[in-house]
């Protein structure tokens, strides 16, 4: 497993979780909320408390659309999406955690699927 300290997540994400004032605007904005087990505001709170392990198992890492609504609307300049991205990167950097093996791709695309979709999905879900 990757190293699971709060400091690692903060360093990779470049985010300061202490700025959070627990308003919940991130989770009030998130379009993927219902698909998440841990919600954007919980990522901020749990990283701040150093509870990293459960987040590494979270399905939210693969539900986040990286739409940056939480980043844009946060009144305090916290970036929940960057925390999610950092945690996802930490998981995927362990080779066995690749979520999107290349051989799966043919079943996932149709004639119109743009390259952009495939490339982004690869960048987000595999290493």
């Amino acid at each position: 497993m990757p190293e699971t300290t709060r400091e690692t997540v903060l360093r990779i994400s470049g985010t300061n979780t202490r700025k959070c004032m627990l308003c919940g605007k991130c989770s009030g904005s998130c379009p993927a909320y219902d698909a998440m087990d841990y919600r954007p505001h919980q990522f901020v709170a749990m990283v701040e408390r150093g509870e990293i392990a459960p987040l590494l198992q979270s399905k939210s890492l693969y539900a986040c659309m990286s739409c940056f609504a939480c980043v844009e609307r946060c009144p305090r300049g916290v970036q929940p999406a960057s925390l999610i991205e950092a945690l996802r990167a930490m998981v995927l950097r362990e080779r066995e955690h690749t979520r999107l093996p290349a051989q799966l791709i043919p079943e996932l695309i149709d004639a119109g699927t743009p390259q952009q979709a495939v490339v982004s999905a690869f960048r987000k879900l595999s290493k």
Partner: peptide
């Protein structure tokens, strides 16, 4: 608001 982006694949 987001169209779900790359998630459309998975």
């Amino acid at each position: 608001e987001c169209c779900a982006g790359y998630l459309s694949l998975t």
